[in-house]
């Protein structure tokens, strides 16, 4: 296990293995989201109270789960990079932040679009909405801190501390609807319980899985790009670039996968 982890921590090994996994994860992502969108937007029934507005849930809820999940992954990767000095972990944390920020933004916007017709307001300062907004600010602060330092190592260390400290917000978001009276409805899904009818639950779960895989796909793609950039002076990247330069530019993307 430790040997494998150390191998995976090597940028070259990661680049090779992730190149093989990427098409499969990417394909599964497209498939799941397409099926989930079709079921959610067309095949599933309208809600008895909200009618068709309920379909916003199929984007909103998976985005919200991702916004919290990605933050935890980012904080964990940042902590691993901080403690064990693993380059790949630093990169994974750094490239996760804009992805997580995007999902948080989507969550806030779709929630607001749903809130206006259903609640009668775009925004209320209740505990769930406010803590999710703080999550967006944490992501933005992390991104700003990353780019504030010239030296990558310093940037990674400083922003890792922010990511770890901010992680305390995630359980607050999650449990806010249980701890306080909020305008936001309590959670509908838990271990062994659901207050969502099966015909709506299936597309929701497909979309949730699809969004998770979308994150994995984006994470792998961005980490690979970042690895190439940071390792551009190392022998293996030079070799890769030389092998590519002989080919025509239109073939480059495909051949980079076939080189190995």
């Amino acid at each position: 296990m430790w040997v494998w982890l150390h191998k995976f921590g090597s940028p070259k090994y990661f680049y090779n293995v992730s190149g093989k996994i990427l098409p499969w994860v990417g394909g599964a992502t497209v498939l799941l989201i397409l099926v989930g969108l079709y079921l959610g937007l067309f095949a599933s029934p309208a809600d008895y109270q909200q009618r068709d507005s309920v379909r916003i849930m199929y984007i909103h809820v998976p985005s919200a789960w991702n916004s919290m999940f990605i933050y935890l992954v980012m904080a964990a990767a940042a902590a691993i990079g901080l403690i064990w000095n693993i380059k790949i972990a630093d990169i994974a944390a750094a490239v996760s932040a804009p992805i997580g920020a995007s999902f948080t933004f989507i969550t806030l916007v779709t929630g607001s679009l749903w809130g206006k017709p259903m609640w009668g307001t775009w925004w209320e300062w209740d505990a769930r909405l406010t803590s999710e907004l703080i999550l967006l600010f944490l992501y933005l602060g992390y991104i700003a801190l990353q780019s504030a330092f010239e030296d990558r190592r310093t940037a990674a260390r400083a922003s890792a501390v922010l990511a770890i400290v901010g992680a305390v917000n995630v359980p607050i978001i999650y449990y806010s609807v249980q701890w306080w009276n909020t305008l936001h409805q309590p959670q509908s899904l838990g271990v062994g319980m659901s207050t969502i009818h099966a015909s709506m639950l299936l597309p929701l779960l497909l979309m949730a899985l699809g969004f998770k895989l979308l994150y994995v796909t984006l994470l792998l793609m961005r980490t690979r790009t970042e690895v190439l950039e940071r390792e551009r002076n190392s022998a293996w990247v030079q070799e890769l670039a030389q092998a590519l330069s002989g080919k025509s530019s239109s073939d480059q993307v495909r051949s980079s996968n076939e080189q190995r």
Binding site: D47, M118, W119, E124, Q187, S188, T195, I196
Partner: peptide
């Protein structure tokens, strides 16, 4: 006056 939705989702 704001409406508060509950956590139940089902077809009509």
């Amino acid at each position: 006056v704001l409406a508060k939705h509950d956590e139940n989702y089902m077809p009509p």
